[in-house]
């Protein structure tokens, strides 16, 4: 019940935003979220059928964070995240075929089959990975923001990482430099409440959104299951950063429905806890409710979008499966960038 009332409170906070979107805009957000969900579910099932190997970290339950962030940021802002990167890649414009191709080691994979689930990149789309070491992407993001400031470019780096990385020295070292040099970076802690299998209460002292306080970095806790709350917080944060104030920190209170990775049955938490969040705070359900109550969207319309998403996913799987395996000739390419290449 505590979860419900907290969610409700946050939800009310941003009610003012509910009517600021056009119906079409909001339906597009819903469509993105439902497609991310169906896509990730399919990835999970393909993994279990043996179509891919290695690690595979799903984003199911956390969709409002990346969707809201993408909607609130500007074209040209840079995104960088951790190994749980499929949704961030997709929302940056990398196609499901390219992501699936990568997961299945095909020549059509976004990294030619050399990166896999955790390492997808497309600088042309301002998506910078896809990094496998917990906390490792935080200094990288800080350097990207350093470059933007050095070049006097109007771009904000949005750096996503989990509550596990929020304990790391890499993060604190980054905060120190970003605040010292007023770098245009937005640190987004996606607090899904588990550092792999260790609950927040058991791995982290203090509050995540206060992690930047000693450095003078303003922080805010946001209902990461509510698209509107995410949108509002990231819009405001980006505005603050663009004004030259330096970094900001947002803690997105979210939840992952699946285990840390495919090999994790998540026995460290109760099924009722997961079910409670699914039925009361699910980000897609919440956005659907607003669409139905404020925008006169019918349940059938939402179901039609769901069907459309499933079809798009099925089509992408078909294309990915048709692609040839990653080319053996690529084994020895891209090791050292030669000096002729830009």
């Amino acid at each position: 019940m505590a979860v419900k009332s907290a969610a409700k409170k946050k939800f009310n906070l941003v009610k003012s935003l509910h009517n600021q979107f056009t119906k079409e805009d909001l339906l597009a957000q819903y469509e993105s979220m439902i497609q991310l969900r169906r896509f990730q579910e399919k990835v999970g099932s393909l993994y279990q059928q043996g179509y891919m190997g290695g690690f595979c970290h799903l984003y199911i339950g956390q969709e409002a964070v990346i969707t809201g962030a993408k909607a609130a940021s500007k074209e040209g802002d840079d995104f960088i995240t951790t190994y749980r990167c499929h949704a961030h890649a997709a929302m940056s414009g990398i196609s499901m075929e390219e992501i699936l191709g990568e997961l299945m080691g095909r020549s059509t994979g976004i990294s030619k089959g050399k990166g896999g689930s955790m390492h997808m990149f497309d600088p042309d789309k301002h998506f910078w990975g896809g990094h496998g070491i917990v906390g490792g992407n935080v200094p990288l993001a800080t350097g990207m923001a350093f470059a933007a400031k050095y070049r006097e470019e109007d771009r904000v780096t949005l750096c996503f990482f989990g509550d596990g990385a929020a304990d790391s020295g890499a993060m604190f070292e980054s905060f120190n430099m970003a605040a010292l040099w007023k770098l245009p970076v937005l640190y987004i802690i996606e607090n899904n409440h588990f550092s792999m299998g260790t609950a927040k209460e058991r791995h982290a002292a203090g509050e995540f959104y206060k992690r930047g306080e000693p450095f003078g970095i303003p922080g805010k806790k946001v209902d990461g299951m509510d698209f509107f709350a995410v949108y509002e917080a990231i819009s405001e944060a980006c505005e603050y950063i663009r004004a030259g104030n330096g970094p900001m920190l947002l803690e997105m209170d979210t939840y992952r429905y699946k285990g840390h990775s495919m090999s994790d049955p998540a026995k460290y938490r109760k099924r009722e806890d997961v079910d409670g969040i699914k039925t009361k705070r699910d980000p897609i359900m919440q956005l659907g409710n607003v669409l139905m109550s404020n925008y006169k969207v019918k349940e059938e319309d939402l179901k039609a979008l769901d069907k459309k998403a499933k079809e798009a996913v099925a089509k992408a799987v078909e294309i990915a499966l048709d692609a040839p395996k990653a080319d053996m000739a690529e084994l020895y390419t891209d090791i050292i960038q030669s000096n002729g290449e830009k």
Partner: peptide, 27 residues
């Protein structure tokens, strides 16, 4: 702007340099 004293935090400022190099700078 171009000659910068870093804190004595090697992990952090190395990662910062690498991130800037990803963007095409030459740290």
């Amino acid at each position: 702007k171009r000659v910068i004293d870093s804190p004595i935090t090697e992990l952090g400022f190395t990662g910062l340099g690498v991130g800037a190099a990803f963007m095409g700078m030459r740290p």
